[in-house]
Every structure is written in structure tokens, then in C-alpha cells.
Computed example of a mutant assay.
Amino acid sequence: MPIAEAQLDTWSKQGAPGPSRETYAAVKKILEDTAAPYAGKNPEVFLQGSYGNDTNVARDSDVDAVALIPTTFAHDAATLSAEQYQAFENTYVGPASYSYSQYKNDVLTWLTSKYGNGVRSGRKAIYIPAGQNRRECDVLPAIQYRRYYHFRSAQDQKYASGICFYLQDGTQIVNFPKQHSDNCTTKHQSTNSWFKPSVRIYKNMRNYMIERNMLAEGVAPSYFIEGMLYNVPNDRFGTSFEDTFVHTYNYLNSADRSRFKCANEIHALLGTSSVTWRAENCVTFLEALKALWISDMK
């Protein structure tokens, strides 16, 4: 039987933002301290993830912050025409004097000096443990990434500005969190404020299933749930949460999902790269959602 509207309404609610907001403010202040060893690189600190996009639910306990420096950047300029790439190389001669690895190490050293030896470098981000009046926090040191459309000179260039970081094995990860956040906000406005509550419903359904061994952890990351629903036409949202789930789910189940884009509108949603969702995991999630919808939830 369908899940009751009252339950869907409960699942649509945003998790309490207070402790996370306070954690972020405190960490941001430390990261932007003018005494930090990287302070001269003009660091910009901002939220990403569920708290940054207002799609957080009760189970979301940590805070994800990006510490971006624009003075060092990676790029895809080699994909431009030979003439434009030569103009790029003539403008930007030689490697950056301040590498990503040096920057990440400086951030790690600085945070350790402020929060103690519980701070550690993970596969992607630097982890700050929970403390007094502080939630867990992941800080992602990142450099700018430029996805070029053209380059004729330093005064005549066009690119999408994203973030770039490297895993411990050297794998480069590129993403566009600001575009993701801006587009999700536009989607929310275009659906008369139904989009973000609907994302929270899908996320809470995922969490409910994980807790009851109906779905494996990691099959449906929050980022990809947002991206999946971003592709649903605006007119499938609204009237009630029950109608919204039915109409969005039916669209997702029947659509050509190979054409879906991430909410940043740059990356494909489904694929095999490090920034895409495996198509089989999307199918597994949709099948689990259907099973939950027709169950009695006991």
C-alpha cells in the first residue's frame, strides 16, 4: 500500500541545521585565518553536500566544506584546437609554483594545530572529529578547475570554473559544486518549492531501507539522488507528497536515463567515471523504492 502522506511529510522535513551551521562557521573562520600558511593564496571556503544544498535529513551528521584556492588551477585546455592550446601555453608558462599536494599538506598541518591529532587525511578530504559543540566535519582542499570552451588570449577566454582534487593514488577528481547548488536552487524555485522536500523524501526512504537491510549502504549517494530528481520535469512535482512521489518515480522508471545530466549540467549522471553513478546502482535503488512503496512498512 502507498506510504501515508503524513509519513512522507515527516520525511520531507529538513534536519536541524543549528549544530552544523555552527560547526561550519567555526571551521570556516580557522581556514580563512590570515595566519594560515596558505593565506596568501586567497582561500575561499564554502559548503557543499546536503547542508550546502538544504537537502539534509536527520541522518546527515557531518559537515562538508570546500577550501578552494584559485591561484593554482588544473584544466582541459589540451582539448582545444591546436591554435588555441598554443595560445594557452604561451600565456601560462610552466607548472604552478604551489602544488595541490603542498596545499593539502598545509591545510592538514594547520587544522591539526587547531583541532589536535584527531585530525586526519582521508581518501578525499581532511577529517575533523566531533568535539565540544562541534559536529564531525570533512574539509576538502581543492584547486580551481577550468573546463575550457575557448582560449584566444588571457583577455579572451571562456571556461566553466569548478574544483579539482587528487586522491592518494593520484586520480584526479573534478566537480562543479557551485553550479550544482545554483541549479538545484533554480529547480526548487521552478517547482514551487517542491524539489528539495522531494529530495529529502527520497533520501529518507533510502535511509529507512538501509536500516532494515533492504538496500546496501553506498548504492544511492545523496549527490546522485539530487541529480536524478533534477532531471524530472517540473510538472511532475506538486499537489501532494504522495502524488509527487508517484509522478516523479514513474517518470524516472520509464525515462531514458542514459541522457540524464548531473545537476551541474556538465557531467553525465550515469556512467563509469569517478564522478558518475553506476547505472546498475540506479536501477537497484529504483527497484528498492518500488518494493518499499508497495510494502506495509512493518
Rank of each mutant, 00 (worst) to 15 (best):
M1N: 07
A4F: 13
A4T: 07
E5A: 01
A6M: 06
Q7K: 15
L8S: 08
S12Q: 01
K13S: 02
P17I: 05
P17Y: 04
S20R: 14
S20C: 01
R21N: 15
E22D: 15
T23I: 11
Y24K: 07
A25G: 10
A26Y: 06
V27K: 00
D33M: 01
T34H: 03
T34R: 15
T34Y: 14
A35E: 05
P37T: 00
Y38T: 03
K41H: 15
P43V: 04
P43S: 01
F46P: 08
G49D: 05
G52H: 10
D54L: 06
D54Y: 13
T55Q: 03
R59E: 15
S61F: 15
D62V: 04
L68R: 14
L68A: 09
F73H: 13
A74S: 14
A74T: 11
L80W: 06
Q84I: 00
A87S: 12
Y92F: 15
G94Q: 04
P95Y: 15
S97H: 04
Y98T: 07
S101A: 15
Y103N: 06
K104Q: 14
V107Y: 12
V107N: 05
V107K: 00
T109F: 13
W110G: 09
L111S: 07
N117P: 03
V119F: 08
R120Q: 14
G122L: 02
G122Y: 03
K124V: 06
I126W: 01
I128P: 02
A130G: 09
Q132C: 10
E136S: 08
E136V: 04
D138A: 02
V139G: 08
L140F: 05
R147D: 09
Y148N: 00
Y148D: 00
Y149M: 00
Y149D: 11
H150F: 14
H150D: 06
Q155D: 12
K158I: 06
K158M: 11
Y159W: 08
G162V: 01
Y166Q: 14
G170W: 07
Q172D: 03
V174H: 04
P177H: 07
C184S: 13
T185H: 11
T186I: 05
T186R: 10
S190F: 11
S193A: 07
S193E: 07
K196N: 04
S198Q: 09
V199N: 03
Y202F: 14
K203P: 04
K203V: 02
Y208G: 01
M209W: 09
I210Y: 07
L215Y: 09
A216P: 06
A216Q: 08
G218W: 03
P221Y: 10
S222T: 10
Y223A: 04
I225D: 00
E226S: 03
G227Y: 02
M228V: 11
M228F: 08
Y230W: 07
V232H: 12
P233L: 12
N234F: 09
R236S: 13
F237Y: 15
G238C: 10
E242C: 12
E242V: 09
D243Q: 09
T244C: 12
T244W: 11
Y249F: 15
N250V: 01
L252W: 10
S254W: 11
K261Q: 12
A263C: 12
A263G: 12
N264V: 04
I266W: 05
T272N: 14
S274C: 01
T276R: 09
A279S: 12
A279Q: 10
F285T: 01
A288M: 01
L289H: 06
K290S: 10
A291M: 08
L292G: 02
I294Y: 13
I294T: 14
I294F: 14
